[in-house]
Design a protein around this nucleic acid. Structure first.
Lengths: 147, 147
DNA sequence: AAGGCAAATGCAAATGTTTGCATTTATCTC
DNA sequence: GAGATAAATGCAAACATTTGCATTTGCCTT
């Protein structure tokens, strides 16, 4: 989904109301075109003269994530980042602990697990992410005067 | 490790100082014998007349976790719980979204992954936990007058 | 035992995020 | 289109947790 009308249709199809704020937030996510924090999105919509409360941003990012419109990732510094979900569906992430670059992982551990190991738990959600140092950050760390 | 002396030896072996507070916190973890939150541990040590600051609790739980003495799990309600690490080594968890019961998983996705999918990331840490409803909570949800 | 140094601590303030509650808004039904 | 209803919002306060900085403490060397 790459245009506003399509996103809005998906939203109403899920029984969500189409508010002015939601439209502005979705447009921000389209414009920012990548991973953004709640703060960045808030700053962006304020700069476009839309007065929106911070908690409204959070509540909407949450709502949009639970209907599958957004993808949420928590970086190593504990700040959450959001992006419009590409068609690829359920997936996980590999996140750099230094530059915070996020890349996708096709692999989902839940599909590899023997059902009996789940001990009859139902509606199982899989929280899985890998944190390491990407190639660029390893190289930087080896330079003589690197920080 | 099930007694204080053994824990203390492990601590100093890792180059950590053996402070009064650390001893008290370790004893609390031994006494509480299961999963406890920072708040619960703080309350427990205060009740035993040891005045310890909250941030000291957090800093120590963090330090003890990074040297492998404790195991930390974040519940679905975003509160972190800690317990003394049993000998079993690296593992992950299955956590009930309703009663917050925590059970162990032998399975670690990182060991199942093709190295090339890690895109040359180094020092890769695996954050993996499953959240669902345990058998007991499913049954309770089906009772006519359940909440 | 005395002195020095790094690690640990107390305190207060800040972090990102969530929540309770009164008010507003979008959408549905007539 | 008017009115009803549930969802969405603004605001302020709360949440668990972290951090900066000055002070204290444990431990190593002499």
């Amino acid at each position: 989904m790459t245009d506003l009308a399509e996103l809005e249709q998906f939203l109403t199809g899920k029984g969500c109301k189409l508010t002015r704020h939601r439209r502005v937030i979705l447009q921000a996510l389209l414009d920012l075109a990548g991973w953004s924090s709640a703060r960045e999105i808030h700053t962006y919509v304020l700069a476009r003269n839309h007065k929106v409360n911070f908690s409204t941003i959070y509540r909407n990012l949450d709502a949009l994530t639970s209907i599958g419109l957004l993808c949420r990732v928590e970086r190593a510094d504990a700040i959450s980042y959001y992006t419009l979900n590409q068609a690829s569906g359920h997936h996980h992430h590999l996140i750099c602990k230094s530059c915070h670059r996020i890349s996708e992982l096709e692999f989902c551990p839940l599909t590899q697990m023997d059902p009996q190991t789940l001990q009859n738990f139902t509606e199982v959600e899989c929280k899985f992410d890998l944190y390491g140092f990407c190639r660029d950050c390893q190289e930087k760390a080896q330079e003589p005067n690197a920080d």
